[in-house]
Design a protein around this nucleic acid. Structure first.
Length: 293
DNA sequence: GGTAGACCTGGACGC
DNA sequence: GCGTCCAGGTCTACC
């Protein structure tokens, strides 16, 4: 069945889809034509829904292989609106971009929304798995988690959603460490899943939290395995751009852009985007670096 | 509050 | 083919 959704304009489906590397992490999958994506979501009923999400002449079409009841349609609608940030208002950011040549195309190309997973739980686990490893390592670890612990779409088990907190909390640490190859991150992921499953922590409330960004960051940093870089990345997924996800790539880009290739530290990177205030994360992420493909 | 070392893996490199 | 080194963030212990 089809569900048609209207985004706040300006909107570009492919700008969201390729806003960062998430599209390459299971269970996300892009179609061969690069114009639509697939993922699977575990609904509140426990049922697994396969979502094929595509552009529909400026709107968004969600296609599921199975019929959904009214409550499920509402849940899928809410989920996809969140994943693509369809309700985000970036007008103030675009107004700032008009005065910056390196972001002059941001509004025309509708840059600014970042692809999110169906749940913030999934985004937090994936973000922990981006730390202290190569991108290929992250892809391998996420593949392994989905393959080993993900909720199957059907009896074949060929397609699986991202593991639920319940499923991951039942995993044992040696398997996460050695089979899923999470290494030293295994206890972090396990503890986070167990805290979520027990109700000690509800990552989904972060999605629409009224907390000030500083306080929200403090809460996120309480999750073991999440440090400054990961917290800034997660805040950006929540639509809070006050902090920069400073990693080795950021150091390299800022060094090349403003410091003639000389090594730079976090203070220099922060200083480079200080004037962007609450938009600094977005300005940094969508900046047209000299070696941007 | 700041810093050093450990954590784990894959890739690059030299032999 | 094997061994060594290094990059990639976060945590913990220590000063």
């Amino acid at each position: 069945m089809d569900i048609l959704l209207q985004p706040r304009q300006p909107f570009s489906f492919t700008s969201v889809m390729y806003s960062h590397g998430w599209i390459r992490l299971a269970p996300f999958r892009e179609d061969d034509d690069g114009a639509s994506l697939h993922t699977l979501a575990v609904l509140r009923s426990g049922r697994v829904a396969d979502l094929h999400v595509s552009d529909a002449a400026g709107d968004v079409r969600v296609t599921t292989s199975a019929a959904l009841d009214d409550a499920e349609i509402e849940e899928v609608t809410e989920t996809v609106r969140w994943m693509l940030g369809l309700d985000q208002d970036l007008a103030a950011f675009y107004a700032r971009c008009q005065h910056e040549p390196k972001l002059a195309n941001a509004e025309r190309e509708a840059k600014g929304r970042m692809l999110r997973s169906p749940t913030f739980f999934e985004d937090i686990v994936k973000t922990i798995l981006t730390t202290n490893t190569s991108w290929s390592g992250t892809i391998r670890m996420v593949d392994a988690l989905v393959g080993e612990y993900g909720e199957p779409l059907d009896e074949s088990g060929e397609r699986r959603a991202f593991p639920t907190p319940a499923s991951l909390s039942r995993a044992n640490e040696p398997d996460l460490r050695n089979v899923a190859k999470l290494g030293y991150r295994a206890p972090y992921v396990l503890e986070f899943a167990q805290r979520t499953e027990s109700g000690d922590l509800d990552p989904e409330v972060f999605k629409h939290s009224d907390l000030a960004t500083l306080e929200l960051r403090k809460r996120i940093l309480e999750i073991k395995g999440v440090g400054g870089y990961a917290a800034a990345s997660l805040l950006m997924l929540l639509g809070r751009y006050d902090y920069l996800p400073v990693d080795s790539w950021a150091r390299k880009m800022v060094s090349q852009e403003w410091y003639d290739g000389q090594p730079v530290g976090e203070p220099e990177i922060q200083a480079a985007f200080e004037s962007w205030d609450e938009w600094k994360g977005l300005a940094y992420w969508f900046w047209e670096w000299d070696d941007t493909p």
